[in-house]
Design a protein around this nucleic acid. Structure first.
Lengths: 249, 249
DNA sequence: CGAGGCCTTGATGCACCTCAACCGACGTGG
DNA sequence: CCACGTCGGTTGAGGTGCATCAAGGCCTCG
């Protein structure tokens, strides 16, 4: 099921993992740094903490010490209301940073849970700030990453606030497609790591509605759905689906 | 209508505006800085750009140069889809920062529009990063502010994804109440700066639904609504409204 | 082989949208 | 000064997209 994750290797496995040799460095904090700077960054990062599928990387309410960069795998983050309602706030893949929400209060404000067996790099935040003082491009890249997260969230707010079920799902699939594509995987053929319920929570829909929306897109020959395996047949029509609730406009 | 904004003065008006004398410095970037550091920050900030009600502070697609700190007034930010749909992504008041979304691509990704006559301080972002290298507490405070924005957005996603109309409005009012309160205004008596339509856009509802929700809360003697003037009579019951869609849980 | 997790599909209900009428406040121009 | 149009808000009536409830299928795993 996870066959696509084996189509790209991170580095020759007997070399000690390191930012400098990480094939995802261009998606991550090292972007824009020179070799010397990457080395300084690399020296404060702890590599390869394994996180098993289903287990927590961090929990709401616990103390914040480190950011996490995903080296391999797939995560969801979710927030809980007191009354037990749960909302998935994001899905994160290789090269993306987790824990940014916790900087403000030094307490994690969401849970991060691995959706497949994963590995993360730990970035002690105090150290990151410290070395940022001597590496302007690192500081700048970090700011860009935080800003990107804000932009992403605004996109989700747009989606939740003004799109219909089918548009939400189309937007979601295209977003995944793009992110897989950037990482060297197929943009039109991939496996979902999350359940219908998790997709629904993220998109503000019930799992049945998600399922029906998948079926509808399949009936229209836009995608092929086989359980968690998704094949996008007609990406252009999928893009049209994203924003056609008021075609007249 | 804006009488409450005259209940607090910013500083004696003949003194040149400055971070060091700004009464909102504890809500803004200077938090945690010593006098010397505030002075360095103050020297890179341009003060008192006036923005008239209804006019744009920045527009989607324009180049990003500076962050804006609100010195006086009230703003909304909104994103547009190609098809004309609009989504309000936030309301911002004194001491809050605008423009954080634009750091990632150096292009503004939303419009910021003044909802009342306002004044902002301009903070050239390149300069801010530059002086952050020598003022660790400034860098840290900036990171906290960005992180806070992410947390706020996650809260909105929660709201949009899993709350009913009345809960959304209650959450919204309590959020405004808290923010007014922090700024020295009444937590239970304030004027809305935005229209029902803007509230609806932010909350993912139509303006009629917002209006009905206001009426319902008034019928229950929880609030008194007089056009844009809101009085909260029973803040505890309003808090209960926030999260009672599934009381059983 | 049975249990449980995940998904799909159908039937029904309801929360919110849509459309429409009306009201008051405000500004403008005759 | 009032007539008028505009804008923002409220309220009602009816429609609909999604939630809810329910049944059943497939796959995995013990």
């Amino acid at each position: 099921m996870l066959s696509d994750s084996s189509t790209k290797r991170f580095e020759i496995s007997h070399i000690k993992p390191n930012c400098a040799t990480c094939s995802f460095r261009e998606l991550c904090l090292p972007l824009g740094l020179n070799e010397q700077e990457v080395k300084v960054l690399g020296d404060v990062v702890s590599y390869k903490r394994k996180v098993q599928r289903g287990s927590y990387l961090h929990r709401t309410g616990t103390a914040f010490q480190t950011l996490f960069a995903i080296r391999r795998g797939f995560f969801k983050t979710c927030v809980l209301e007191e009354d037990g309602r749960q909302q998935v706030t994001g899905f994160y893949m290789t090269g993306e940073l987790l824990g940014l929400d916790a900087i403000s209060s030094e307490i994690h404000t969401c849970d991060a849970i691995a959706l497949e067996d994963s590995e993360v790099c730990e970035i002690p935040f105090a150290k990151l700030e410290e070395i940022s003082l001597t590496i302007p491009s690192l500081m700048h890249q970090f700011h860009k990453i935080m800003s990107r997260e804000i932009v992403r969230d605004h996109g989700v707010m747009m989606l939740l606030g003004s799109m219909k079920a089918e548009e939400r799902l189309a937007t979601f699939l295209l977003n995944l497609s793009r992110r897989f594509s950037i990482r060297g995987y197929s943009a039109s053929d991939f496996n979902l790591r999350m359940t219908r319920e998790e997709i629904g929570s993220y998109l503000g829909l019930k799992l049945e509605t998600v399922s029906r929306a998948f079926s509808k897109l399949q009936d229209e020959n836009i995608i092929v759905v086989d359980n968690k395996h998704i094949q996008i047949n007609d990406i252009e029509r999928l893009k049209i689906k994203m924003g056609n609730s008021s075609c007249a406009a």
